[in-house]
Write a protein that binds this DNA or RNA. Structure first.
Lengths: 114, 114
DNA sequence: CTTAATTGCGCAATGG
DNA sequence: TCCATTGCGCAATTAA
């Protein structure tokens, strides 16, 4: 539908003069409702924007955690393997499958969750 | 400023008839601009909403990672301490400060990052 | 049916 | 001067 010019004078055609009071009251009420609705809408939008900021922040923290945990884990694994290897006794850990244990399950490839 | 009734007929008061053409052209162009602007605005809002969804998702993945890493780390630490303790030789790891190493630096309490 | 909330739209003021 | 943005009112539609 193109631009659409003329628009006014299409409503209070039925009656006028007497019910004009009623008409205005209705219009005023609606205008207030519109105002309320738009304020509410803007608030919601703003909250969404804030939520993005908050989530970004949480994400940064979590990424830092993952980084640190991964680093520490890598360190322990190295130490683990070095010890088991140099001492020539991998059996000290009672047949634990180090290969599997020391691979990296941290990328959520598992289906087994508690 | 309260409700504010009457509003129409306050603009093309200067001239009329001749420049009416120009007036309408202007109005039409502005109406298009308004439409464009509002579409753009809605798109931006929608993108923000989508961003929230995306970030929530990323967050879930990261939390899962932290959970898995923490679990694995805990397991390795236990194994580590058990071995060092039962065998009575904590020195096998060349004086490494297990207390410090095995505490948990994953909660970003440190100021020293590589 | 009555009222409040939403929504699309045009007008005008204002920003750039 | 032109276009973009924004506050505001009107009316149609939707939801209570």
């Amino acid at each position: 539908m193109a631009p659409k010019r003329g628009k006014a004078k299409v409503a209070p055609e039925t009656e006028s003069g007497d019910d004009s009071d009623e008409y205005r009251k209705k219009r005023d009420r609606n205008n207030l409702a519109v105002k309320r609705s738009r304020i509410k809408s803007k608030q919601k939008t703003q909250e969404t924007v804030n939520r993005v900021t908050q989530l970004k922040s949480e994400n940064t923290v979590l990424e830092e955690k993952v980084k640190n945990l991964t680093k520490e884990l890598g360190f322990l694994k190295e130490l683990f393997l070095a010890h088991a290897g140099s001492a020539g006794d991998a059996s000290k850990f009672e047949g634990i499958d180090l290969q599997k244990l020391l691979s990296d399950p941290s990328d959520g490839a598992s289906t087994s969750n508690s």
